[in-house]
Simulated assay, not measured.
Amino acid sequence: MAKTSVARPSEVVLAARAARMYFLEDRSKVEIAGLLDISRFRVARLLDTARALGMVRIEIGLPGTLDAALSAELASAFGLRHAFVYNFGDDSDSSLRHRLGEAAGEAIADLAEATDVVGIAWSRSLSGLARSLTSFPPCPIVQMTGALSRPGDDDLLDLVRAVTRVGGGPSHGFYAPMIVDDAVTAQAIRRHPDVAAAYAMLSSVTIGMVGIGAWLPGLSSIYDALSQPDRDAVTAAGVQAEVSGVFLDANGTPRQTPLDERMIVTPAALLTQLPTVLAVAYGTAKCQAVWSALNGGVVNGLITHASLARSVLALSTPGSGLAGPRAGSG
């Protein structure tokens, strides 16, 4: 009987390399594919091989210590529907992103029911969401935005499909960028059948998963992807934060910008009407942006770490100069 490819020494070693990069070095499948000069589909098969051979053992548990008291305080201060604050220590941004992505997976698995429609928007902080999912209700999964292509980033459509595979419900995803060069191109993309089908589902979304960016270098994937003239035009519109492509001023009020017609995102008017918008945010440098998103009510749920939660709460204390209309609401 011929040996299978799994038994080949070269394949075993390659599976071990891929598993190490993915699980220990927090590299995406796309990045691993580039480093090993193979397709990302083969990377996925190698990771399956690593599990089958016992190289990788997965234990399911809380990705950190949930701080119930701080979670309740944050929810009370901003009138949030949900708040999950974890004590992760002073980890690096990449580690926080990975661990909070897993926490987001546990949170959405806990909150979602078969009657929900779950939307997932572009955000690097959501890249690890599917890794912690072992079960999920068979509800529809809707892609809420296009994606930004950056080295090391996971593909948004892959994430939508991964969550769908666990739950077994219908999937509404598409290949499209988040930002294009002109409004005519954006309109053409929105008319594509896959994109149009997903857009038609947006008003039915009951739980949206998003990320929060500060309008500064290195703190927003959108900011970093734009030319300097585009950045300046958005800044001139009074933008200081963004929620998966929805631009906000310092108080959290959505602002129109010259970029809006060129973006494949859930419009602000629709995003703010969704019953639950659950954001994942990490890094204390985003403190004011997170405060703005919570204060303006664009986001009514947050998954974050303790140091950022405390920084956001500090901005709502009297004398901070930022205590807005939602601060202190119960």
Rank of each mutant, 00 (worst) to 15 (best):
L322S: 11
R8H: 09
S171E: 15
V142K: 07
Y86R: 02
D249S: 05
A309Y: 05
V299E: 01
L278A: 01
D116W: 09
L129W: 01
I38C: 04
Y22W: 05
L278Y: 03
S135Q: 14
T317R: 14
N87W: 05
D194K: 10
D154R: 15
D48R: 12
W215K: 02
V180M: 11
Y282A: 10
L80N: 09
S76E: 13
D48C: 07
H172A: 07
L271D: 00
S292G: 09
G54H: 11
I222H: 06
A19I: 00
M201H: 02
F247R: 03
I120K: 01
Y282R: 09
Y199R: 14
L62Q: 08
G152D: 11
A176D: 00
I32D: 00
L278K: 05
G238F: 01
D260K: 00
R191I: 02
E25S: 12
P170Q: 07
V243M: 03
Q256Y: 15
L259W: 01
T266H: 10
A285C: 08
G101Y: 03
I189Q: 02
G128Q: 05
G89M: 12
P325I: 13
N295M: 07
E106W: 03
A114E: 14
S244K: 08
T272W: 03
A18Q: 07
A176H: 00
V277Q: 00
D158H: 13
Q273C: 09
H305T: 01
A7P: 00
A109H: 04
